[in-house]
Simulated scan of single mutants.
Amino acid sequence: MKFRAQMKDPLYMREFQNIIATLSKLSKDCLMILGAQQMHLIVNEDQSSTSSPLVWVSIAATEYFPEYVMEAAHPDQDYIVLIMSAANLGRALSFLRGGGANSCKLKLQRIQFPCISVACSLLSTSSTEARDVLYDVPVTIIPASDWPTYVVPQVPPSQLALALPSLRLLRSLIDKLKNMSPSLEFQANSDGELNVVATSEMSTVTSRFKRLLPRFLSADSDRASCLVDSRKASAFFTALQLANEELTIAIDREHSIHLQIDVRKDVMLHSILPAVCA
């Protein structure tokens, strides 16, 4: 079983660090599924927190890693599946935040325990020579017999999807509305209008976003709505550390809302907010 990968582009290294920082704010554990061409990072709903949403990131290896090697334990296996502390991985990559890194290497190895070794080569302000920072993140290697329990989530079907060009207003709005109502209703229509509705015993507040770009519209539906937990919605937006502003909101009527951020062409962050009862 082998895995090693290397990043060299400063922008990609910062993006990768921001992705891990986002995940570390949502759950203590992170599932890493390493395929031959893709890396998946998943944080499931934290059982100790009712406000933690399901979030996962799919990364095409060639986008971030000019060097990427994965060899499973057996020739008939396609993956390596690991569980680790999202916070520990975030701390190991925190050196990339400042933008002074030459490279960052990830390697699966066993020292006294299985771990992902993170090696960052950093430029020094006081010297022309780079210094290396090493950090070993303990991991649990999941045996193939348990893989059916650890799978990449599937994007749910939807009747209507709209693209929101900036998530800043929505982030601020949901942060305020979560204190007003335990649930939020997202209503969308084919005219590119998104309504976010919060209802309490005293009042109903509706916030409207107009002239949004439809990303998807089913043939038999020109509107869709779904009621979700306001705390889970707020947790997702509060955790985001990515600079990308555009967000796609897809509604599977009365079942779930799928949120997607296209970090770049083949790097996507997803979250599913399940429907709640009114």
Rank of each mutant, 00 (worst) to 15 (best):
residue 104 C to I: 01
residue 138 P to Q: 11
residue 123 L to I: 04
residue 153 P to N: 12
residue 126 S to P: 00
residue 94 S to W: 08
residue 154 Q to K: 14
residue 82 L to R: 03
residue 139 V to S: 05
residue 152 V to Y: 11
residue 107 K to M: 12
residue 161 A to M: 04
residue 110 R to E: 13
residue 114 P to T: 03
residue 137 V to L: 13
residue 112 Q to F: 14
residue 100 G to N: 13
residue 100 G to D: 11
residue 151 V to K: 15
residue 149 T to K: 15
residue 137 V to K: 09
residue 151 V to Q: 15
residue 106 L to W: 03
residue 128 T to I: 06
residue 137 V to F: 13
residue 118 V to I: 08
residue 104 C to P: 00
residue 131 R to M: 13
residue 116 I to L: 15
residue 118 V to F: 07
residue 140 T to Y: 12
residue 117 S to R: 08
residue 129 E to K: 06
residue 139 V to I: 08
residue 126 S to D: 07
residue 104 C to M: 10
residue 118 V to T: 04
residue 118 V to S: 05
residue 131 R to L: 13
residue 133 V to E: 06
residue 158 S to H: 15
residue 109 Q to M: 14
residue 147 W to L: 02
residue 116 I to M: 09
residue 138 P to V: 03
residue 103 S to M: 06
residue 112 Q to P: 00
residue 155 V to W: 08
residue 156 P to S: 15
residue 87 A to S: 13
residue 100 G to Y: 06
residue 113 F to Q: 13
residue 101 A to T: 01
residue 135 Y to V: 01
residue 139 V to H: 07
residue 95 F to V: 03
residue 110 R to I: 03
residue 153 P to Q: 08
residue 157 P to W: 07
residue 140 T to N: 10
residue 96 L to F: 08
residue 137 V to M: 12
residue 132 D to W: 07
residue 85 S to E: 05
residue 82 L to N: 03
residue 83 I to Y: 07
residue 123 L to E: 11
residue 105 K to Y: 08
residue 92 A to N: 02
residue 110 R to S: 11
residue 162 L to T: 01
residue 146 D to M: 10
residue 116 I to C: 05
residue 160 L to A: 09
residue 148 P to E: 14
residue 143 P to G: 07
residue 126 S to M: 06
residue 117 S to Y: 06
residue 90 G to N: 15
residue 118 V to H: 04
residue 152 V to I: 15
residue 127 S to F: 13
residue 150 Y to A: 03
residue 142 I to Y: 12
residue 107 K to H: 11
residue 121 S to R: 07
residue 104 C to E: 03
residue 162 L to A: 04
residue 88 N to F: 10
residue 121 S to E: 11
residue 83 I to E: 13
residue 107 K to P: 00
residue 103 S to I: 00
residue 115 C to W: 07
residue 111 I to T: 15
residue 145 S to R: 14
residue 122 L to G: 03
residue 154 Q to A: 15
residue 101 A to Y: 02
residue 144 A to C: 12
residue 140 T to L: 12
residue 139 V to G: 04
residue 94 S to G: 09
residue 89 L to C: 07
residue 135 Y to M: 04
residue 94 S to T: 04
residue 130 A to R: 02
residue 85 S to F: 07
residue 108 L to S: 03
residue 103 S to C: 05
residue 109 Q to V: 04
residue 108 L to Y: 11
residue 113 F to S: 14
residue 105 K to T: 02
residue 102 N to R: 10
residue 151 V to F: 08
residue 91 R to S: 09
residue 126 S to E: 09
residue 136 D to R: 07
residue 87 A to T: 02
residue 84 M to N: 02
residue 157 P to H: 11
residue 127 S to A: 12
residue 127 S to C: 09
residue 147 W to P: 00
residue 92 A to T: 00
residue 122 L to S: 05
residue 127 S to V: 00
residue 119 A to L: 12
residue 121 S to N: 10
residue 112 Q to A: 13
residue 86 A to T: 01
residue 136 D to C: 10
residue 104 C to F: 05
residue 110 R to V: 04
residue 93 L to V: 00
residue 100 G to T: 03
residue 124 S to R: 01
residue 91 R to P: 00
residue 126 S to Y: 09
residue 153 P to T: 05
residue 147 W to G: 01
residue 92 A to H: 02
residue 115 C to A: 15
residue 115 C to E: 04
residue 127 S to M: 06
residue 128 T to R: 13
